[in-house]
Design a protein around this nucleic acid. Structure first.
Length: 964
RNA sequence: GGGCCUGUAGCUCAGUUGGUUAGAGCAUGCGCUUGAUAAGCGCAGGGUCACUGGUUCGAGCCCAGUCAGGCCCA
């Protein structure tokens, strides 16, 4: 950090210059000649107004004394030009290792660990990222200024399908060996990581950008594998054949979090399942009775092994034409062709129908009817076709009754021989739908068919519809530690509180976790297979692999052949290594083990992510952490909503991505950060041009407030000019209390992560109390009073304190502007090394604050009255007025204070009730220097016939000093 | 379809356990100032608190339903 204030702000230098001017002016005056050539130093503060001769009052040159007035001056420009200025500050912060300096400075402070949730290293940063990262930075910058040691290690999620899919698109089929794919994926990830890093840094987010954590780092991968070994050791990892979400587009199993729902039209059919004659006979049903079964996935019929009904619902036997059909009574009226069918027999409870045996409509096999509570009377026919290989509920029912998860569909979603229908083999399931419907029709068992629009799961990457399919997969046995995970949820503080419900229901409904992916870009599942297909998955072996990976990365798994690898690990020959990778949610969900634990930062104080992460990272982290250590990895979890456009619609990622760089380039990071600070992020966050434009207004308001503080301190040196608060004029003592109030409100808001409260308090203070009140009232004192007089220096003392406090309070929100202002204040170190101002109670007692409440009420009445006179063209500015105040609360001795507060030339108090205000045009003459009206003007000194006594005194003493 | 939420001036936000005519800042309009000037000051307008119904002496706040929107799930 450069020492000394920027050029042009140092008080004494200007003073000597202004005295020089004074001397020149006086000389000119003596010559009583042309004053228009009055030489002036170059303008430091905006544009100079026209030269004095243009004064409006002809004959009397009132501008004459302009140079004896101590006007504000500063090099802190009104125009921020953030897009130009911010990069320069960034460069300087980087050069000076500001982030390291901050950590160093807080070395002894209590720790505050915010653990970064890693975004995918894929694509440009968008507004959603900006929101989340800025919120994290607001938390950390404010915690840092509260004295905490608050490091920020940004992370990136580098493995996974999104990246692999992109890479595969550019890779010729013959070049798709795992090592090549992985190499391309790594460079792809690192490329986007670099882009995002730059975009995040540009927002003024402080952190260890040079050493982020990356899930592709060998050390990270080692951490994941070591955690995995622990889970294996605890017996929580198993291999199973069960239905999983399967993406045919990506040829892999998917996690729940990788599935998105989109509208899709499917055939909805009602199929007749003929009962076996002996079943009919047993229950006294007519021969040829059929169950009516509803499905929207005809392609799963070849895998049908059972039918389920609800044991508690009533069912009926209906006659339609020559058919006898069983359906749920609640549904019969809604079914095509059964609207008016007579019900010839009722079964009070479905239970009575359990155990019926039916013939498969297309295949030569039979199945049984089972009771199941997931069958509802809301839709369908009351009979649900069960294919244990193609649905989770079906699978569970199958498990109960010993049915295998038959799944005659391959990786591409095409029927295999196993389906039993030769004409289907090789067709995709979607093609199969219509063929199966045709076959049913041929068999005379298709009761009804219609198009059905519903939300259907799709692969988030390939956007293809997902199928449920049974494959051999690895699972984490979540059920084993689910109760503990649920208990741990309540050991965590969830903000907002409703978030607790969301994570709870996510974990509560959690099924066993399918963790294997048939992909190359990820951490390999460290498993070997024997000749007979059985698996070798042993904790010690995994730990050995982990240590090797820690040295050279997971590429070695792919680069080393089976035999060598097995030998290196001390395994017997003849083993074949597995080819699946771990679900990326294992990668990111292990970050507490791979990042926090080695740094001694487990558990973290705070996780802060978007609300979609309840089911995502918050959950995966919780599950893995509880599985390993029985503890949640975080003490507090804070969530932010999504960025919405004007109509409250979700902002598309494309628009958001395009927007971020554009908005930074146009408005600057500080404006964008102010938008984040102003928003109630716990809900969805609105974003639009208008909002940004309003925010931009607020930014200017803050900036101008900062600027006027600086400008009025141009001749103030705290070490020499400070006045003790006890010696402040009353007004300033009042404002000192207001400032203390603000400090408390803002810091408390930061502490509670309530940034809009901090933002509003700060802007309200700057506009209402500072600009429209304090500074406005202070002008006479600052500009016209004796430069070194106690009143002026007292006010400056407070202005200086306000600058010091306001800049720091604003620093987390607008770090660039706050830094710029801090330097303009003459500070040498970065503002971000500072602590927040101390939180103090007001010093004024109750009568004092009541007195000031009355003063402000009176002021507002006076303003109203003045406005009336102004409209009547009696006065222009307030100084042209004289006000008579009838009030029981003030006395004649308050007249001076009231005149100062009302900004009028004179106040007369009539001590009586009720309160009454009367405005008159001020009498007397206007002082050429301070512009106040008074009877005294010109009576003090013949040399200064246009001055009031105060200004005469001040000007004389200036002349005195100039001569000596 | 289910779970969890949200809906207060043009914009962003406050509205304490239900209690006078619902607040703030910004924006808008009209003035003033021209010694914060691509600034500053004053005054003013602007709200069926999403809608409907209920509980209550009294509802922005409590209850039910409707509409709109979000996240998650099926």
């Amino acid at each position: 950090m450069r020492n000394g204030p920027p050029e042009g702000t140092l008080g004494h230098r200007h003073r000597s210059r202004s005295l020089l001017r004074l001397r020149i002016r006086i000389r000119h005056r003596a010559a009583s000649d042309d004053r228009r050539r009055d030489p002036r130093p170059p303008a430091l503060y905006g544009k100079r107004s026209p030269l004095p001769a243009q004064s409006k009052l002809s004959g009397l040159d009132l501008m004459d004394y302009r140079d004896t007035v101590l006007l504000p001056r500063t090099s802190f420009p009104m125009r921020a030009e953030l897009p130009k200025r911010e990069p320069l500050l960034l460069e300087r912060w980087r050069r000076e290792n500001l982030y390291e300096q901050i950590l160093q400075a807080r070395n002894q402070g209590p720790r505050f660990i915010l653990h970064d949730g890693p975004p995918f290293a894929n694509g440009n940063a968008h507004l959603g990222h900006a929101l989340n990262k800025t919120l994290k930075d607001l938390v950390l910058k404010s915690r840092n200024m509260m004295g905490f040691f608050a490091p920020y290690i940004p992370g990136w999620d580098c493995h996974g399908l999104p990246i692999e899919t992109k890479v595969m698109a550019d890779l010729p089929p013959e070049g798709r060996d795992p090592l090549t794919i992985r190499k391309r994926c790594a460079s792809y990830a690192l490329h986007y990581l670099g882009i995002q890093r730059e975009q995040f840094e540009r927002l003024g987010i402080f952190g260890d950008w040079q050493r982020p954590y990356r899930t592709l780092d060998p050390a990270y991968e080692e951490g994941v594998l070591l955690l995995f070994a622990d889970l294996v050791e605890k017996g929580l990892v198993f291999e199973g054949l069960r239905p999983v979400f399967w993406s045919t587009g990506c040829r892999t199993a998917l996690a729940e979090a990788e599935v998105e729902y989109q509208p899709r039209t499917d055939p909805s059919i009602d199929v007749e399942f003929p009962l076996l004659p002996e079943s009919c006979r047993e229950r006294g049903l007519p021969e040829e009775t059929k169950l009516l079964v509803w499905t929207t996935t005809p392609w799963t019929l070849p895998a049908n092994l059972a039918v389920a009904l609800n044991p508690d619902l009533p069912y009926g036997l209906y006659v339609a034409g020559d058919r006898h059909l069983l359906v749920a009574i609640d549904r019969a009226h809604a079914l095509p062709g059964l609207e008016n069918a007579p019900c010839v027999r009722r079964f009070r409870r479905g239970e009575e129908l359990r155990g019926l045996r039916y013939r498969h409509p297309l295949l030569a096999r039979t199945g049984l009817v089972y009771p199941a509570h997931f069958v509802t009377g809301d839709s369908g026919t009351g009979f649900v076709h069960i294919a244990p290989g193609h649905g989770m509920e079906d699978y569970l029912l199958g498990q109960e009754h010993g049915l295998p998860p038959l799944s005659p569909v391959d990786d591409d979603g095409r029927f295999t021989e196993e389906c039993g229908l030769p004409e289907l083999v090789g067709l995709t399931v979607w093609e199969g739908n219509s063929r199966i419907i045709a076959l049913l029709q041929q068999a005379g068992l298709l009761w009804a068919e219609r198009a059905y629009l519903h939300d259907y799961p799709h692969c988030w990457r390939s956007k293809t519809p997902i199928i449920f399919r049974s494959v051999r997969q690895w699972f984490i046995h979540v059920k084993a530690f689910q109760p503990e995970a649920l208990r741990q949820i309540d050991a965590v503080a969830w903000l907002p509180p409703r978030a607790r419900n969301r994570i709870y229901s996510a974990v509560e409904s959690r099924r066993d976790w399918c963790i294997s992916r048939q992909r190359s870009w990820g951490i390999p599942i460290p498993v070997f297979y024997r000749q007979d297909g059985s698996a070798v998955l042993e904790p010690e072996v995994i730990r050995r692999i982990a240590r090797m990976v820690g040295r050279s990365g997971t590429d070695l798994w792919y680069a080393t052949d089976d035999e060598t690898l097995a030998r290196k690990l001390g395994l017997s020959a003849g083993l074949r290594k597995g080819t699946d990778t771990l679900d990326v949610w294992i990668d990111s969900g292990s970050s507490h083990a791979a990042v926090l634990a080695p740094r001694g930062e487990f558990p973290a104080d705070l996780y802060l992510e978007g609300s979609d992460q309840h089911r995502g990272w918050f959950q995966s982290s919780l599950l893995l952490s509880v599985a390993r250590s029985g503890k949640a990895p975080y003490r507090t979890v804070l969530t932010n909503g999504f960025v919405m456009d004007l109509d409250g619609r979700k902002l598309s990622k494309m628009a958001g991505a395009r927007g971020l760089s554009d908005f930074v380039a146009q408005y600057g990071a500080d404006t964008l950060r102010l938008w984040v600070a102003s928003a109630d992020y716990r809900d969805d966050v609105p974003f639009s041009q208008e909002i940004l434009s309003r925010i931009s207004d607020s930014y200017r308001l803050l900036r101008n407030a900062f600027r006027i503080l600086l400008a009025n301190l141009h001749d103030f040196e705290p070490s020499r000019h400070q006045v003790r608060e006890e010696e402040f004029p009353e007004l300033d003592r009042y404002m000192a209390d207001r400032l203390r109030g603000l400090v408390r409100i803002v810091i408390e808001a930061y502490r509670r992560y309530e940034f809009p409260a901090a933002y509003h308090a700060l802007t309200r203070f700057c506009s209402t109390e500072l600009s429209a009140f304090y500074i406005d009232l202070l002008k006479d004192r600052l500009y016209c009073e004796d430069q070194d007089g106690p009143a002026r220096r007292g006010s400056q003392t407070l202005l200086y304190r306000m600058a010091e406090h306001l800049f720091r309070l604003a620093a987390p929100m607008i770090p660039f502007t706050a830094e710029e202002a801090w330097q303009s204040l003459g500070k040498s170190g970065s503002i971000h090394l500072e602590l927040f101002p101390p939180e103090e109670s007001p010093r004024g007692d109750l009568p004092f604050s009541e007195r000031w409440t009355r003063i402000l009420e009176l002021r507002s009445l006076v303003n109203e009255a003045l406005e009336g006179s102004r409209r009547a063209k009696e006065i222009g500015k307030a100084l042209e007025a004289e006000v008579e105040v009838q009030t029981p609360h003030f006395r004649a001795r308050d007249e001076g204070l009231l005149a100062e507060v009302f900004l009028v030339s004179r106040v007369r108090v009539l001590q009586a009730a009720p309160v009454l205000i009367r405005v008159r045009r001020a009498t007397g003459r206007q002082c050429a220097r301070c512009w106040k009206y008074s009877e005294e003007v010109g009576r003090t000194d013949p040399d200064h016939p246009d001055l009031c006594p105060r200004c005469t005194r001040v000007v004389r003493s200036m002349e005195q000093r100039t001569r000596t």
